[in-house]
Design a protein around this nucleic acid. Sequence first.
DNA 1: CGCCCATATTGCAACGTTGCAATCAACGTG
DNA 2: CACGTTGATTGCAACGTTGCAATATGGGCG
Lengths: 339, 339
Amino acid sequence: MAARLKDVAALAGVSVRTVSNVVSNTATVAPATRARVMAAVEELGYRPNLAARNLRQGRTGLVGVAVPEIHSPYFGALAGHLIDAAQQRGWTVLLERTGGRPELERRLLDGSQGHQVDGMIISPWSTSPAELASLAGGLPLVVLGELEPHGSIDHVALDNVAAARAAARHLTAAGRRRIAAVGLQSGLGHGTAELRAEGFRQGLAEAGLSPVAEVEVTDLHRAEGARAMRELLATAGRPDAVFCFSDELALGALRAAAEQGVHVPRELSLMGFDDIEDGRFCTPSLSTVAPDREQIAERAVQCLAERVLGRLDTLPGRRIVVPHRLLVRESTGGAATPV
Amino acid sequence: MAARLKDVAALAGVSVRTVSNVVSNTATVAPATRARVMAAVEELGYRPNLAARNLRQGRTGLVGVAVPEIHSPYFGALAGHLIDAAQQRGWTVLLERTGGRPELERRLLDGSQGHQVDGMIISPWSTSPAELASLAGGLPLVVLGELEPHGSIDHVALDNVAAARAAARHLTAAGRRRIAAVGLQSGLGHGTAELRAEGFRQGLAEAGLSPVAEVEVTDLHRAEGARAMRELLATAGRPDAVFCFSDELALGALRAAAEQGVHVPRELSLMGFDDIEDGRFCTPSLSTVAPDREQIAERAVQCLAERVLGRLDTLPGRRIVVPHRLLVRESTGGAATPV
DNA sequence: CGCCCATATTGCAACGTTGCAATCAACGTG
DNA sequence: CACGTTGATTGCAACGTTGCAATATGGGCG
């Protein structure tokens, strides 16, 4: 059915090896020969058999990207950028969802789940860096969203503490005094929430304030944000500003506020985190912290490439900090941005 | 480095072939032998080399899923379901984005882009069914979102005409008379928009009405919806209801309406299409047509499985219609649904 | 006790590719 | 004119797995 090197060789009147040299550019081939081979390739519609090539070379050309979920706006956008960055380097991305479940994260890393990959980019939820390192074995690994490097694993992340501090500062600078946070997650090895909480508290402390409430959530989705906001609005000492650790939480909170007739931003200032597209188009538009997703993706793939190609097993894990921006929109009293 | 069948065989004191029989369940193996082999597998941490297996069997275990974009809420959610459905059948999904670009759709299908796959599920944007068939060659193919089967390609889609008709009926039944549509796309082989427009017109006609406007868009994103709505609100004969062909368009339209101080649903009734999560949490919540995404994914993978495993090259293309539901929410005067 | 059958295990070859090293032709140089 | 050198091409083997067919083992039956 499908043409093989052998078939092309027969048609072009050269050896199999020469055809291989032409299609993979591995040796000098006389122009005339190359032309003849190319013509045969064209005529037969030859495509290299990747299974065979991979078997021979020991590399698959696949890189795994494991995120908690792909249908969430944040991870969906990030995954898109990762795919772009990988494609530029000739890799194909195998997108995996962990759903935040520890056993899935583990199975992906130890290779018992899914296909063989040359390396992996993971945004862990419930697995600690130390555990990641041991599970991955020799597999080149880049971790997103954690700050403590461990072993020979590279980390790419924001400075979550500074970012949350900036958000808190923005709220205090606008004169808010009764400020709450939504998005803490207890009992999770996942450090992001704690880092944001830490930065949040620092930012308030600078203005001589402390949080009026810190609401824990079980996930970062809208429904949890709505629940948290209802909880906050039901308490006696209602907050005048709320910082949600994700835009999705904030959108849920916004909805709950609207249901209770609480005007945002007049009565309540609201901030998110992530800069997802919905936040630009909802009413009021959502102030947020915007990570440079494109750069996260680019740097992550770059790190992975260096490890896969350079065999840097011994190089200690690097920590790469990607910049973020504070976006002030209507939900904290900013101007309507043209959409 | 990695353990091979040979290593396991040596450790267990059996032949390579027997180990293969154990790990792939291909022949009867004595319980005692099986146990010994399993122990050796465990001890060495053996994992089958998929490249070798694929080379030998001629199948890759990969199935391609090509969607215009993965970071859009609709396709993101659909992709998630497709991954689930494929995983249940032991397949790994290779997610590809076409970005709606014809040349990318083509390259994916003719195999010159990306990895080798056993089959492909594609949600085409700019390539016609006939073209798809010829490009795919012998590659088993399932097409999402088109209704005209062609060649030996299966199609899985909604009844877009009926769905749009139901949406239009809902608006006329609520007493709206000046109804516009947003989301037509001229010059695109893509049939979905035309089908929805057709259903929309039918629904209005049943009430003796015709559209007051039909606004074309260049894509289905929020920004285009906002632009279209501004355009509609600027005209003399302002509509009292708007049907957007996607929820994203509707969310942009909602934003634009809010900016212009037009109250939804009092002054303007608004409907979307797709049932993305944002529509449940925005204010007002968005009435929409909800395709059964899970079933779309399940049926698509099922069709593909039958073709890949059964070699049904000759079976003519099937047309599978998946049900949809009309969800009435606040944007057309429905009650606030608890979130 | 010998034969046959079912069950369990094995050896060989092949899937399509590329690394390695050898071969071959042609050319410029001493 | 012989020689070394470069450039072009080639044959062989191997990557790790499984299909095929053959062989060993044990048990039931005549």
